[in-house]
């Protein structure tokens, strides 16, 4: 883009050029931000609206027509087990991320780097497992869960969620490991590192962005499930947020809109912030790896 600007225009001051580039980028980003953020804004404002305010379309719906209220959050925290659900969701996701990390990262490395006989077939088999829809698996899995004695405990979900995060992250890691130049690893070997040493000291640090991405995805994917949570965990204090909220805030034909949306944002926003933080680490990791 800068190249084009240089070609048409007479030399400008650096500042002008910067300004122009910024404007272009902002203009380009505007529609994305609008698409992504408008529903979020709408949820945010709905969460603070009084119920009758939701049904008034004669006034501008983007702002409060009746004074804002905290009642929807009171419902969340005092009439439901929302606090427990948040704790459950975060703990489940953390465990799932850990399990995923411990299995998918080594597996991805082995498949991408070690030229194992049969690696291709194993890789494809792992991929195939991701093709199997949850709707097919949840009945047989409910027997597994019952056998393990985990029915109606959130530990059931810790066991089950890696079935979709492990294949996903294994393949993600394969992709990342393949982008690491082979020479780096070989150089480490020459320097006297063992195989494990080369992996831990050279390949992993360079692939840190990939590892973090895997963690983030494992964490987020764990929050996207509904069916397993519904089928395996029914006690009010054991549910994760995505199951607890629709379960207790939709009463047959009455939706508690404000509380629903507040509930989604309270778990979604911190994760988004976490995400952003990880994205930073991830770019640092890259530049660090390359500059060194």
């Amino acid at each position: 883009m800068t190249g084009v600007v240089q070609a048409v225009a007479p030399p400008r001051t650096k500042r002008q050029k910067e300004l122009r580039r910024h404007l272009l980028v902002y203009a380009g980003l505007a529609p994305f931000v609008l698409i992504a953020v408008f529903p979020i804004y709408w949820m945010l404002i709905t969460a603070f609206k009084q119920e009758p305010d939701l049904y008034r379309m004669d006034n501008i719906p983007f702002w409060f027509n009746l004074p804002p209220t905290l009642k929807n959050f009171e419902i969340l925290f005092y009439q439901t087990n929302y606090g427990a659900w948040i704790v459950n969701t975060m703990t489940i996701s953390a465990w799932v991320a850990l399990i995923t990390l411990l299995t998918a990262v080594p597996a991805g490395y082995a498949l991408a780097r070690l030229r194992l006989p049969g690696a291709e077939n194993i890789g494809i088999t792992i991929f195939l497992t991701y093709l199997v829809p949850a709707i097919i698996l949840f009945l047989p899995l409910s027997r597994v869960i019952a056998t393990l004695g985990l029915q109606d405990s959130w530990w059931a979900l810790v066991v089950v969620y890696p079935t979709f995060t492990v294949p996903f992250c294994t393949w993600l890691m394969m992709g990342f490991f393949k982008t690491v130049p082979m020479e780096m690893e070989e150089a480490a070997r020459v320097d006297g590192c063992g195989q494990l040493g080369a992996l831990v000291r050279v390949v992993l640090p360079v692939s840190l962005p990939g590892v973090l991405t895997s963690v983030i995805f494992a964490f987020t994917l764990s929050m996207q499930d509904f069916l397993y949570g519904l089928a395996f965990v029914s006690p009010g204090d054991q549910k994760p947020v995505p199951v607890g909220v629709p379960t207790e805030l939709i009463r047959g034909d009455v939706f508690f809109w404000g509380s629903l949306m507040g509930a989604a944002l309270l778990v979604g926003l911190p994760v988004a912030i976490l995400y952003n933080f990880f994205l930073d680490r991830f770019i640092q990791g890259i530049t660090g790896g390359v500059v060194k």
């Binding site: 992504a36 953020v37 979020i40 996207q224 947020v241 629903l260 979604g268």
Partner: peptide
């Protein structure tokens, strides 16, 4: 921009 992806889909 990443918020939509982080919210639980069911909600």
């Amino acid at each position: 921009v990443v918020i939509p992806f982080t919210l639980p889909i069911a909600i």
